[in-house]
């Protein structure tokens, strides 16, 4: 038997249980009223979080680097990473490998003495270089020229910041 919407009396399609303190409240809403209250979105987000907590983090099979596009599984097969940014983007899978190989997690020792550009700027350039290569392959030379200029500008900014 369909309950009516708590708000407008239309047949409800969204049924939630809200727990405030020790009290349980059943909430019945129609789609429209649920949308208005932004309830469903929150709920979906929460469901995702629950699944995440139950099943662990994102499966390694879908892990990939947005800058060089190498997939974690590809790295596992060939044993070589694609770009310096992988240490962040594939971190979820790499951490355990590094710990096993090295028996440690953190670098101590020499470090570059100069101030360097933030890693984000470096990552952007690696991404632009890949996009340039893709544009050249697709024979999209207009785009390639644009990307080349962007790389040049980005490199200039990086060099000036050092």
């Amino acid at each position: 038997m369909a309950s009516p919407c708590d708000n407008c009396g239309e047949p409800a399609t969204v049924h939630l249980t809200r727990i405030v303190g020790k009290e349980k409240h059943k909430v019945h809403l129609c789609q429209q009223c649920a949308d208005k209250q932004d309830l469903l979105k929150k709920q979906v987000l929460q469901i995702h979080n629950v699944l995440h907590a139950l099943m662990g983090p994102m499966p390694l099979a879908t892990l990939a680097c947005p800058a060089c596009r190498i997939q974690f599984m590809e790295f596992r097969n060939i044993g070589r990473l694609g770009c310096p940014h992988d240490y962040d983007s594939l971190r979820q899978g790499l951490e355990e490998i590094i710990r096993r190989l090295q028996g440690a997690r953190k670098h101590i020792g020499k470090r570059p003495s100069l101030l360097r550009a933030d890693t984000e700027a470096n990552r952007v350039v690696v991404t632009l270089r890949r996009e340039l290569q893709e544009a050249v392959q697709a024979e999209d030379y207009g785009q390639a020229v644009l990307l080349r200029d962007q790389i040049r500008n980005a490199m200039q900014t990086i060099q000036e910041s050092q």
Binding site: D88, Q102, K106, H107, Q162
Partner: peptide
């Protein structure tokens, strides 16, 4: 060389290398 080249360096993992067997120093 380091004065002329921006090396790939990570606060936590040190000098970044193509294979994690060399990362750090």
């Amino acid at each position: 060389l380091e004065r002329r080249i921006a090396y790939a360096f990570h606060e936590e993992f040190g000098y970044l290398t193509a294979c994690p067997t060399n990362v750090g120093t």
